[in-house]
């Protein structure tokens, strides 16, 4: 795997923003040109650091939305009371510098050789690292079967909506909208619970490899339900985004 064999020191470096694209009303994808980027693995993240004129420093972590081999892209959701996210979604523009360090992570990563079948569970912006996994699978020609169960509040909150609507061999995308559904909605209409998982998840006997990402309460509830249904805990990988409640 290019880049990972080299034990490269993790240092802060300045990247250039090449594009800021709109995903939803509160979500942007920031594409970056990172000098000397060693490549990354699907599921990894970067730390970013903002500094104001008085020397005040704010640091946050964001999952890499792009696949290995694609330019580094971060998808950021604006939190209403956020200190950093509103700057990234509303102020940052192409040509700006952004200080970051990465890639980071060795647990919540997927390579085609890790196999499957894959179960990806996304709560809100937890879909970001899972999208990197999906794109990596696509780009490598992997035929590992994947089910993505993606929970959002409303249809307008679904990130990468057009991309996820494209039918892809071996990939099933199941959506649930928890707060409001459009007329004629054919997907699920409630929070992910044990019953929903029983309908959607691979049977435990298939020995799935699972990645769960989203707010902490979502991840805890979903991973507990899966383990209770027979999933092996060591094959359920979790990434908790914090937050104050469910999706």
């Amino acid at each position: 795997m290019a880049g990972t064999a080299v034990r490269r020191r993790l240092t802060w470096q300045v990247a250039k923003v090449t594009a800021v694209t709109v995903e939803t009303a509160s979500v942007r994808t920031i594409t970056l040109d990172v000098p000397g980027w060693p490549g990354h693995q699907a599921g990894q993240h970067v730390d970013i650091r903002l500094t104001d004129e008085d020397g005040y420093v704010a640091e946050r972590s964001y999952s890499i939305a792009s696949a290995p081999g694609e330019p580094v892209a971060l998808t950021v959701e604006r939190l209403d009371d956020g200190e950093v996210s509103p700057y990234l979604t509303d102020e940052l523009r192409a040509g700006d510098d952004l200080e970051l360090r990465g890639p980071i992570g060795g647990y919540f990563v997927w390579e085609p050789d890790d196999g499957g079948p894959l179960l990806l569970l996304a709560g809100g912006s937890g879909v970001v690292p899972l999208r990197s996994i999906l794109r990596h699978r696509e780009r490598t020609g992997s035929t590992v079967p994947v089910r993505l169960l993606y929970s959002s509040r409303t249809l307008n909150d679904v990130i990468y909506r057009n991309e996820l609507d494209i039918p892809t061999a071996g990939v099933e995308v199941i959506q649930t909208l928890t707060r409001h559904q459009p007329p004629g909605w054919a997907g699920y209409a409630r929070r992910v619970d044990a019953a929903l998982l029983a309908e959607v998840a691979w049977p435990a006997a298939a020995m799935p490899l699972t990645y769960v990402c989203g707010p902490t309460s979502f991840v805890e509830a979903v991973s507990q339900d899966l383990v209770q249904s027979g999933y092996r805990p060591e094959r359920v990988k979790t990434e908790r985004f914090g937050g104050t409640g469910g999706t």
Partner: peptide, 24 residues
């Protein structure tokens, strides 16, 4: 405010230990 998990301090751990630690 909810806790996060060790993934969130991957950078800090790598800075302190000199290597990837989240899978340790």
């Amino acid at each position: 405010m909810e806790a996060v998990d060790g993934n969130a301090i991957g950078g800090l751990l790598q800075e302190v230990f000199g290597t990837e630690m989240t899978a340790a």
